[in-house]
Amino acid sequence: MLGGMTAVTLSRFVPLPLAILAAVVITTIVGAIIEIVFIRWLHKPSVLRMVIITIGLSILIRETALHIWGESVRALPYFTGTSVSSINLAGVYISSQILWVVGIGALVVAALGAFFNLTMLGRQMRACSANRDAARLCGIDAGNMVTLSFMVSAAIGALGGCIICPITYVQYDSGTPLAIKGFTVAILGGLGNSTAAVGAGMILGILESFSIWVLPTAYKEAISIAILLIILFVKPSGIFGSAEAARLKEF
């Protein structure tokens, strides 16, 4: 939401690619500041404490956005073409923006996979998630890793907001439902597995879209959350996650 809104505001003054880049950078910095100010100095915070703090923060960000941007709904222009133009792809007409979304999404997933598996920094981050104390013993600065993970997820969130908002529009309160949906997908795919998260995201999206065949559109949001609850009740390790890995985490 923050990314989308910032990009919309900036795009009035600078060209679109630059605006998106700046929005991503700004949101990343905001993510880092939030982590440093609110989370970093806490001594061994319980998970619950962090959850409540982040919920409080999301309210604050939302209210701040409301006071900056007001209640109006905004959107970025389509990256190429317009909202009515479409591309013929083997007999199927789809909007060009959808191709942008799919393409950039695939790029981000590939980049994340490479980051976590190939670079030193990515491996350090995974080590911290698996066992913080052991990672620290190996000389990894766990605090920096948490800040970095906040920044990476803020940047990806901002980028996602920018590329999707020509289609879905953005307003001050469009963040919270997305956060819930993101959490659902992450659980569904098994936490800490970005490739499986894409598969889970597709399953969730398709289920949600097809649910309007049988249920009123207004219930669409409730569907994804109901799926979240069912997954949590039945298989908290996620459909692609291994039960063994899940046992190491705390549910």
Partner: peptide, 13 residues
């Protein structure tokens, strides 16, 4: 459920 799973599940409800 415990921790953030409990929080998210009740929030979801």
């Amino acid at each position: 459920l415990k921790g953030h799973y409990l929080a998210m599940a009740t929030l979801g409800f």
